[in-house]
Computed example of a mutant assay.
Amino acid sequence: MSMFTLHPQLAKDTVWVTDLALCKVLLMNDAQYPWLILVPQLADLREIYELNSEQRQMLWEESDQVSRVLVQVFNPIKLNIAALGNMVPQLHIHHIARFTTDPAWPAPVWGKVPAQSYEATVLESRLSQLREALA
């Protein structure tokens, strides 16, 4: 049985926020959107149906928790939640807080405009804010 390892593309594009019971919570390193990604810490997963019933329930509960934090902290007009996996096959669920003022609105965020990495002080502040809200 293989051990869980984070896909290299996710490791490159995100910053670790915290670990929940099932999932790693990652912040997409794109300051244009409050964007969290949940990654179940189980090896060799590609699809939600591969989780057992208890794991699926835990995934939805953690997704609900992350969604509520994004709404509480950022007050978006819409949340986009998606598990695409076309570029990164490892199971991961995007949670993106959306605003009419964001650069991709109302289109999906993928491929619309290049990512803008967080400045170090803004990143530290954002991580602190999210960790506190998720605690």
Results as ranks from 00 to 15, higher is better:
M1P: 10
M1Q: 13
S2W: 04
M3N: 10
F4G: 07
F4L: 09
T5N: 13
T5E: 11
T5L: 10
T5P: 00
L6P: 08
H7S: 10
H7V: 02
H7C: 05
L10Y: 05
L10I: 09
D13G: 04
D13R: 06
D13L: 11
T14N: 12
V15F: 04
W16V: 09
W16C: 09
W16D: 14
T18W: 08
T18K: 14
T18L: 06
D19G: 15
D19N: 15
L20K: 13
L22M: 09
L22R: 10
V25E: 12
L27K: 12
L27D: 12
N29M: 13
D30N: 13
D30H: 01
A31F: 03
A31E: 13
A31M: 10
A31D: 10
Q32C: 12
Y33W: 15
Y33Q: 15
W35V: 13
I37V: 15
I37K: 08
L38I: 05
L38P: 02
P40N: 08
P40H: 11
Q41F: 05
L45T: 12
E47V: 01
I48G: 02
E50S: 05
L51V: 01
N52H: 08
N52Q: 11
S53K: 09
E54D: 10
E54N: 07
R56Y: 04
R56D: 00
R56A: 10
Q57V: 02
M58H: 03
W60S: 12
E61R: 13
E62V: 04
S63K: 05
D64R: 15
D64H: 15
V66P: 07
V66Q: 06
S67H: 09
R68C: 11
V69T: 13
V71P: 03
V71I: 14
Q72I: 03
F74I: 08
F74D: 14
N75F: 00
N75K: 15
P76A: 03
P76Q: 00
P76T: 07
I77V: 14
I77Y: 06
L79Y: 01
L79D: 02
N80C: 03
I81T: 11
A82V: 06
G85H: 05
M87G: 13
M87N: 14
V88L: 08
V88W: 05
P89L: 06
P89Y: 03
Q90H: 07
Q90F: 06
L91F: 12
L91P: 04
H92Q: 08
H92C: 08
I93K: 10
I93G: 09
I93P: 00
I93S: 04
I96N: 09
A97Y: 02
R98A: 02
F99M: 13
T100P: 15
T100H: 13
T101K: 01
D102K: 06
P103Y: 08
P103T: 14
A104M: 02
W105V: 08
W105A: 11
P106L: 01
P106K: 00
V109N: 07
W110E: 09
W110F: 03
W110P: 05
W110G: 05
G111V: 13
K112D: 03
V113M: 04
V113S: 00
P114M: 00
P114L: 02
P114N: 00
Q116S: 14
S117W: 03
A120Q: 14
L123D: 01
L123Y: 04
L123P: 04
R126I: 05
L127W: 09
S128A: 12
Q129C: 07
L130P: 01
A133Q: 08
A133P: 04
L134N: 11
L134A: 13
L134E: 07
A135L: 15
A135D: 14
